[in-house]
């Protein structure tokens, strides 16, 4: 079994897949920033933002529910925002009796909580669509265009290349642990400390295998003329249609924001 399934890229021949990665990265960040800047309980604004991301999802040919479903991964973290239900001052909306105590959910608290959850869910869809429609080497190119330091982009690139190799390594380690750990059904093996120690040994050997592999990779790079300098191809020019897409995208998120802040 290989860890290929962790690659989030989904190859399609769609409009979104053909957009320049620099445009996609900038617009994804602009979308998330716009969503963050919308005030709480700005429902019309949220609907516009949702319509926008839905349109992008349809343009990705991945199916309209692709990002919507995956974005529910954000749910566990929503717990962190739960207290605003009770602490936001406002009109009481619901009393929750808890034995001797009672919690009061305010209407304003409910609106604020729903806003946080919605914003988070909407923002995540932008990230999902970006990762699903852009191969990683193109994202690296976009990062270089945005002046991320070369050494860092080089580390990102090497990390990506060996991610699958080391994830395979981790899967093999876990398979070996399963194969060697006999346990009665329902019983959890030996003590927690022992299990932690075994996992620690696995992490250590994963680290060592990575370390030794990096030495071999360095030798191979040296044999091919590596001199410590990270060299890259010049960035390709942006097509006129991509520049237009960038402007249109920024105009749309800008007008949603303006509409919500000055009119709404």
């Amino acid at each position: 079994m290989h860890a290929n399934f962790i690659d989030p890229f989904h190859a399609r021949d769609s409009l979104l897949h053909h957009v320049d990665p620099r445009v996609k990265l900038v617009l994804a960040v602009a979308f998330i920033l716009t969503t963050a800047l919308l005030p709480p309980a700005a429902w019309p604004g949220y609907i516009l933002v949702f319509a926008l991301i839905l349109a992008v999802a349809i343009a990705s040919a991945l199916g309209p529910f692709f990002a919507i479903k995956r974005a529910f991964l954000v749910l566990p973290f929503v717990l962190a925002a739960l207290p605003v239900l009770f602490t936001t001052p406002g009109e009481p909306w619901l009393h929750v009796p808890l034995g001797r105590w009672a919690l009061t959910i305010t209407a304003a608290g409910l609106a604020r909580f729903a806003s946080i959850a919605l914003k988070s869910w909407l923002s995540m869809q932008a990230g999902i669509l970006l990762a699903a429609s852009t191969p990683f080497p193109q994202l690296l190119m976009a990062m270089r265009a945005l002046r991320v330091p070369r050494l860092l982009v080089g580390v990102f690139g090497l990390m990506w290349r060996y991610l699958f190799v080391l994830a395979d390594e981790a899967l093999r380690l876990m398979r070996a642990r399963e194969a060697r750990s006999a346990a009665l059904a329902g019983a959890g093996g030996s003590s927690v400390l022992w299990r932690a120690k075994v996992t620690g040994y696995m992490a250590g050997s994963l680290f060592l295998r990575g370390y030794e592999r990096s030495e071999r990779i360095y030798d191979a790079m040296l044999a091919r003329g590596y001199d410590g300098e990270v060299r890259t191809l010049p960035l390709p020019p942006m097509a006129r249609s991509d520049k237009a897409a960038l402007l249109v995208g920024l105009a749309i998120v800008g007008s949603i924001l303006a509409l919500e802040i000055w009119v709404g």
Binding site: L151, V155, V165, R209, E215, Y218, M221
Partner: peptide, 24 residues
């Protein structure tokens, strides 16, 4: 020295993969 880039890249991959390891 110049071996830093492969070292840091591969070890970042190792840490990422290491986060998959867990124990009950």
């Amino acid at each position: 020295d110049e071996r830093k880039m492969p070292l840091m890249g591969v070890l970042a991959a190792a840490i990422f993969a290491g986060q998959m390891l867990n124990f009950a």
